[in-house]
Amino acid sequence: MSDVSALQHLINSLTCLPSVGKRTAQRMAFHILENDRGAGSELAVALSSAIEKIGHCQRCRTLTENDYCRLCLDKGRDESQLCVVENPADVLAIEQAAHFRGYYFVLMGKLSPLDGVGPEELELDKLDAILAEGKVTELILATNPSIEGEMTAHYISQLAVKQLINTTRIAHGVPIGGELDYVDKGTLAHAFSGRQQY
């Protein structure tokens, strides 16, 4: 019966969301179908338009609807500092917690050779090109302190060394295996201001 499979399809699709298991997905599906079909339609439209419109900033790789993101277009920021993070959520966390006025480069991941993620997948050539412009004097490595995060920081620091750019690493007040966007603001601000020569 096709109506059953449409419901099942919806439930299965909802489980792709973080924190949503089978039971929650079921509750969500019934809620939309029984109580709030209008909001459901809106959600469907918002979802497909976001997927269609949102791409990556051509400079820093973060998510944006335009060619360049809001932060890259902000000429008031300090172009001598560039902060490398793993995810767009890390940018938000740092913007909220730290007094940082430089620009970002968002890796959208981290080096993970066993999973087939190398420098090409992270488009590190784009980062290299920004460094080659000669305006950055401090490259701040704010990748997570996981094995892969450390390896990524090391790899990127080598790029900076080639261009004679000073590299710093945020202090490890951040717990091992922790992720920047989960760490509380005080800790992150501390880690950021206490960054050290790499």
């Binding site: 050779p113 066993l114 094995i147 450390e150 390896m151 920081a153 090391h154």
Partner: peptide
């Protein structure tokens, strides 16, 4: 050491 992480993962992959 951070500079040896890749080598450590390589040893692991040999076993894998």
């Amino acid at each position: 050491p951070i500079s040896q992480i890749a080598r450590g993962l390589y040893f692991g992959e040999l076993i894998l």
